[in-house]
Design a protein around this nucleic acid. Structure first.
Lengths: 234, 234
DNA sequence: TCATAAATAATGTCTAGACAATAATGGGGA
DNA sequence: TCCCCATTATTGTCTAGACATTATTTATGA
């Protein structure tokens, strides 16, 4: 599977020393000269190995001071934000989407969440409910820039969730997420069949294509029905 | 700020061509020979630039077939979960940690969150409050496996948050996160100075080192005080 | 026609050296 | 003592070439 490659081996060796705790944050790695001698190779080979470690954030290289094991300061986790329909299907429950409201607007509102999209065309507003096993699972409010996705105007969202439709019809290049909690407003509580003030998980997502806003969505889940999980390997 | 560096420039140029859409997924990049001619440099320099792009997952390199712009993968976002002290400091507020309770236990409880760590040694229980600008910011409950981090037994957590301490003293290799919402229990509400039932964001994290559990932490934030954000570029 | 072998085009890796840039170190002078 | 400056160790970057590896393309032969 893995071709030899001395640089890879050096990188793996050093990484093992760090992960095992033999080298702790702040410790100095052997100098490139020492590693050249140890492995009997040219300096570029050692430099490539250490450069890869630096690229992965495991070490920081400093002229004269040498290469130090980096102090971790953030935990980065790869968060998968799957399609809700898929999530529910994976749980073995029946899934349905109920469209609650739909409207087309020519003007852009003042809402900060909406202006962050910097939309150019008429806007399609959608409001719907994801239903799992007959009971409400999530409330979704969405704005789609029809200039970016003209086909959305004639798409039928009464049965298919706009998220699923967009995945197939609107490629995107960047996205921004906000994840938080909120207390359900009276309107949200009515739609989700919970009490006003009930704790909910909120996921907001802005999606862009080449810097141009495509869609904004805000999903609200009663806290007992959904949570995000993220695995992490460094 | 940014030292010249031809390799960096080549990398940036190519990345711009990809992000702007001039090069689409599946398209071929110029060959290394062509780039050598274009920039008038040695092949290693070009190779280094393209290698960095490949490391970032933007392109895939294939012998004979050339380097292709990678197809975007799944909808994943890189979530950064920073140290709370750093978060608060970045907001320009004063930070403090108040230790509320501390205890050492010889036995492992039946709690599913705890058994997921599969701890081997005595356990250190900590409960504390992160304070920003004089008011409660987050409540933290933590379990540390003293077999994995013996030094934690004698560490002073009355002023320094255990998370910050562990970052410096206990390297980890894997982590698992759960992110959700909850309604504050009476005890949690009292500590955070909010009303019972108040909507809160909850982050739970299990941290491992070479498969061995190190710590489990559960952090609770009043929803108006904190939220997670995740950027994603494809 | 089809399978096989050869040619070829591209990346993968490495070398041995050169000069540049930077920051810690140590020495000298006020 | 303290500041400044020269020294020096260390990484940053690049070169020009070499050979290896691999997948495609082309040519060959049955």
């Amino acid at each position: 599977m893995k071709p030899p490659g001395l640089a890879r081996r050096i990188r793996a060796d050093l990484e093992a020393r760090i992960r095992s705790g033999a080298l702790n944050p702040g410790d100095r790695l052997p100098t490139e000269q020492a590693l050249m001698a140890e492995y009997g190779c040219a300096r570029m080979t050692v430099s490539k190995a250490i450069g890869a470690l630096a690229g992965a954030g495991l070490v920081t290289r400093n002229r004269r001071a040498g290469t130090l094991v980096a102090h971790p300061h953030v935990q980065t986790a790869v968060l998968e934000i799957p399609d809700i329909a898929e999530t529910i299907a994976a749980l073995g429950e029946t899934y349905a989407f109920r469209l609650l409201a739909r409207g087309v607007r020519g003007t852009v509102g003042q809402d900060a969440r909406e202006t962050a999209l910097s939309p150019v065309g008429p806007l399609l507003d959608l409001r719907g409910l994801h239903v799992a096993g007959g009971s409400p699972f999530a409330l979704e409010e969405r704005v789609i820039d029809l200039a970016a996705v003209p086909d959305a105007r004639s798409a039928d969202f009464s049965g298919q969730a706009p998220g699923s439709w967009l995945l197939k019809h609107a490629p995107w290049t960047e996205a921004r997420h906000r994840i938080g909690a909120l207390a359900a407003s009276p309107a949200e509580a009515r739609a989700l069949d919970i009490r006003t003030g009930h704790a909910c998980l909120m996921v907001e997502r802005w999606t862009f294509r080449l810097g141009q806003g495509v869609t904004f969505v805000r999903q609200i889940f009663p806290h007992e029905r959904y949570e995000l999980t993220a695995e992490f390997r460094n």
